[in-house]
Computed example of a mutant assay.
Amino acid sequence: MYFQHSSDLWAEHPGLAAGVVLATGITPDVSVEEPIAEFGAVAGRRLAAGPEAEFPEIQAWRRTFSKMGLKPTQYRCASEALLRRFKKEGDLPRIHPLIDLCNAASLAFAIPVAVFDLANVSGGLEVRHATGEETYLTFSGETENPEPREVVFADAEGRAHARRWTNRQSGLSAVRPSTASVLIVAEALHDSAARDVEELITTLAGRLGEVWPVAPKTTMLSRSAPRLEF
């Protein structure tokens, strides 16, 4: 399998930093409340100092969404949406231990984190511009076709596992109780993105190894080394 960003995306977004965590051996029968609380405390301190809209991580994604022709207050990157909900409710709903942990890390770092169940990904994933022919399965079970030029996570069969880049994941490869092998992707575009994404994936891999009997592997991708094969 593989994960990569297209050369077009690297050319259009030279400030992109992308990190990947691979793990096999995930189960739903663990507790992640301790790291969730720690990550939540970090997010709480940042939000107490100022609104999420002023975070450099969020501002960079807003500029990127605007560049893609999307209204940044209508289509928000995943980390901004999580921060807004966390600020309003003081917590996030529990879905699955892995998702809960990754959402909490996303809060703390203000960086979008996507998690894909590899059992439902064909061949691999490429983050690229859509042709408009890809299929996307919503969480409600409906099938959509992304707009041409929209940024999607597409597999080898032309199935889109995320729409509008970091805005909306598909129900097809969502983590579920049977999930065992996952690909976790973190992406950022702000000035210190490379350093912050590397810290995020290193921290997250460490937490995974503490909770599950897994040996996560981390990789940073770049324009000169854009592809990971595994």
Rank of each mutant, 00 (worst) to 15 (best):
A18D: 11
A48F: 01
I26F: 08
L47H: 06
L16D: 08
I58P: 01
G25C: 04
R84E: 14
L16Y: 04
A43V: 12
T64S: 15
P112W: 06
R62D: 12
A17K: 08
A23T: 09
M68G: 03
A105E: 10
I26N: 00
P93E: 07
G69Q: 09
P28G: 04
G44D: 15
V32C: 11
G25Y: 05
F39T: 10
F39C: 14
K71Q: 11
E33S: 12
A53S: 06
A108I: 08
E54N: 02
F109E: 08
L47N: 01
L83T: 03
E89T: 08
P112D: 09
A43I: 12
A37E: 14
V30G: 01
P28D: 15
V30A: 05
G69E: 03
L92Q: 01
P56S: 03
H96W: 04
A37P: 05
L83I: 08
V30I: 11
A53T: 13
K67F: 03
V113N: 05
E89G: 00
N103Y: 05
L107C: 12
G50K: 02
I58Y: 00
A41E: 14
L92P: 03
F65N: 13
S66L: 14
R84S: 09
L22M: 07
Q74E: 09
F65I: 06
F65T: 01
A110G: 01
K87M: 11
I111E: 07
P35D: 08
I26M: 14
M68T: 02
P97W: 05
G69V: 00
R84Y: 00
Q59T: 05
F55E: 04
